[in-house]
Simulated scan of single mutants.
Amino acid sequence: MNEYAKQLKKKWATLLLLFLFPLLLIGMIVGLIAALLIPDENTPIQVALVDEDLTKESKLISTLLTETASGQHYLQIVSTSKKQAQQMMDRNEISTYFLLPKDFTDDLYEGESVTIPMTGNPLRPIDSYITKELVDSFARYIAAAQANILVINEFAKETAMSKDERMEFMYGQFIDFTLYTLGKDRMLDEEVIMNAASSSPRNYYLLAGWFIALSIWLLSFYSILGKEETKAMATRMTLSGVTLGQRITGKVIVSFTSGLILASILFALIRYAIQIEFFLIDYVRFGLFTALYAAILLIGIALIDIWVSAKKTALFLGCIFVFISLLLSGALIPTLYFPQSIQTVFPYFFSSISLNWMMDLVLEERNYANFTSLTVYFCFFFLLLLFSFSWKERWRQ
């Protein structure tokens, strides 16, 4: 560790360039990605509603949804035909359209499953995702209304009411329930999606850029130390009794310390720019997530270094490992923009877990944290590193 620290001190000019270059590169890349992906905050999401049932119940729902959304600054719903909705989507005027299908009312009253088809605009994936959450919420309210109506219908059948009177009574109950759930903006208020990438893109990409810079610095420090370790130096260390495990551990610890120092300086600047209120416990939580992520990333790079003897190949694979970690974390491209089937994998990867909790602590001001997943990852990688040390030493002997 002392030898590696001396090497870094001799290269102070290189370290200064190492501090500045990733910031300039990340600023350009993240700025380009943000400009392409993040929509205008003042432009509401345009959604079309197609009523194919054309009953008084479906017309009531269409009217209430349209009027409820008209007072919102983030969502607008227009009632059109299916042909008009498809034409509007082809012209990229709407992000999504959904249907109230034929027999919608009959299925509702008869207790049949009610399906609400939705078609999203592939050019507006994030808007389509938000609309999907809205439609899912709407479907839950429909299911709740259906359950209430069926219960009332069963009790009404036991009375002396005629079928026409019973249907009129059920319609009245349907109106009451619909007005209760939709007329007071309940559905739209409950389904406001707090997505930091779109609600506060500047803060999101500032923190994402910091996360990318931290990863690049960790890889760079480890690579610099490995480059300076010549075969002659490795031989002298071996003759002096320095094991492979001690050398790798020294590089990991020095890289870990140096990377966190630069990251702390940059985070202080970002915190000043974002103007968030951080208490001591918040610094502790954020620091633990940072330390666990940095340790896991460096151990992963070290494992590649141990098992790949060619330095250039090991460096290339290390870069690939860091790039995949950043891609799956959502720092380069928010995970919301990936296909729905792939998004289910992201929450189980260590970089995604780390960045999500960091975002919650900084942008959402979360006052609690769960370190279990990252701790399990760290223990697994650490045990794998110890096993690699033992196996490699035996193989060399």
Rank of each mutant, 00 (worst) to 15 (best):
I342C: 10
L336A: 10
I353P: 04
A331M: 08
N356A: 06
I296S: 01
L327H: 09
Y368S: 00
Y348E: 14
Y337V: 09
F316C: 14
I304F: 08
I324K: 04
S309Y: 02
S390H: 13
P334C: 06
L317S: 01
L383I: 12
V345N: 05
I320G: 10
L303E: 04
P347E: 00
F321R: 01
L327G: 11
D360V: 07
A295W: 02
E364Y: 10
Y348I: 15
T335M: 14
K311S: 15
L363G: 02
S352F: 13
E365M: 14
L298D: 08
T344H: 13
I353Y: 05
F382C: 14
L315T: 13
I320M: 15
K312A: 12
L355G: 01
F316I: 15
L383E: 05
L315S: 11
L336R: 14
V322G: 08
K312G: 14
L332Y: 12
D360H: 15
F350W: 09
V362E: 00
L384D: 03
S309Q: 05
L317I: 04
S352R: 15
S309N: 02
L303N: 05
F380P: 12
S354I: 08
L327I: 13
A369T: 06
R366A: 12
F350G: 10
V322F: 04
S341D: 03
L303Y: 05
L355E: 03
L315K: 14
L336T: 09
F350I: 05
L328S: 10
T375Y: 09
D360I: 07
L336N: 07
Y368M: 00
